[in-house]
Design a protein around this nucleic acid. Structure first.
Lengths: 123, 123
DNA sequence: CTGTATCCGCGGGGATACTG
DNA sequence: CAGTATCCCCGCGGATACAG
C-alpha cells in the first residue's frame, strides 16, 4: 500500500517519468466534483459580477438548495467572493477571487473540449 | 463598472462577452465527476501502458469495484484503451486513446494547480 | 430577492466474496 | 492477476416550505 512494491519490471516505463502522488489533490477535486461546481465557476467567471438569480437562471433546472450549497462551498474555499448589499430588496453579487480566476482559466478549455466532444463519442 | 443593476440595458456586461451554454457539457463533466475519474486519466497517462494492479496500487485505498467501474466507464467513453493479453497469468494493459490524451493534457494543469493550492486555502 | 432548513429518494461507492 | 457480482449504507441532490 504505502510502499511501491518493487516489481521485476520496475523499469518497464522509463525512469525519466516519475509518478506523481495525487493524494493531496482529493479535497479540491472532490469539491469540484460536486454537481454544477465546475459550471458555477465558469458561469460566474463569464458573468461577474453576477447575482444569485442570474446564476440560477443560467442553469434553469437547479434546486435552490443545491445551488446555495455549491455557492457556499466555493465561497468558503476561497474561490468565490460574495458581496452583499443591504438594500431592499437585498442584492448579492458573486465574483471570482484571484484563485477562482486561475481555476476558471484552467476549467474553460476543459469545458470547451467537452463541448466539442459531446455527441462525438462513438457508440 | 458595468454593474448597473436592473437596467433597461440588455447587455449589462459587454456584448463582446457572450454567455456560453453549458447544457451539453453535462454528460462528460458528470463522467469526470465520478470518484477518481480524473485521477485515473492522469495516472494512466503517466504510467501507460499500465496494468490494473498498478493503478490500484497508485491509489491504494480504492475498492476494486469502484476502480473497475471507473475503468469501464472511461473505456466505454473512448478515453481509455484496454488491451488484454490472454496469457497466464492474465495481463491487461490500459492506455490513453487520442481523446484521452487530449483530456489528460487539460487535466494535468488542473491537478497541478490543485496540488499547489491544497492546504493553502484559508479556514 | 436571496437564501436556509427539512424531508426524502436514489444512486454512487465501499466491503466482501467469488470467478476466469 | 484482473476483474465482476452482490449487499448495503451514506450522503448528494431535488422539492418544498419558509425566513431575513
Amino acid at each position: 500500500m504505502s510502499g511501491n512494491p518493487k516489481s521485476t519490471d520496475t523499469d518497464r516505463r522509463s525512469s525519466s517519468e516519475d509518478v506523481r502522488c495525487y493524494c493531496p489533490v482529493g479535497g479540491m477535486i472532490d469539491l469540484l466534483s460536486r454537481k454544477y461546481a465546475i459550471q458555477v465557476i465558469c458561469v460566474v467567471g463569464a458573468l461577474q459580477p453576477v447575482r444569485y438569480g442570474e446564476i440560477e437562471d443560467a442553469f434553469g433546472d437547479v434546486s435552490s438548495s443545491t445551488l446555495s450549497a455549491r455557492l457556499s462551498e466555493l465561497t468558503d474555499a476561497g474561490l468565490l467572493e460574495r458581496e452583499q448589499h443591504d438594500t431592499i430588496p437585498p442584492q448579492v453579487e458573486y465574483a471570482l477571487t484571484a484563485d477562482g480566476t486561475e481555476l476558471c482559466e484552467l476549467l474553460e478549455p476543459l469545458l470547451e473540449w467537452a463541448e466539442n466532444r459531446t455527441g462525438t463519442e462513438r457508440d
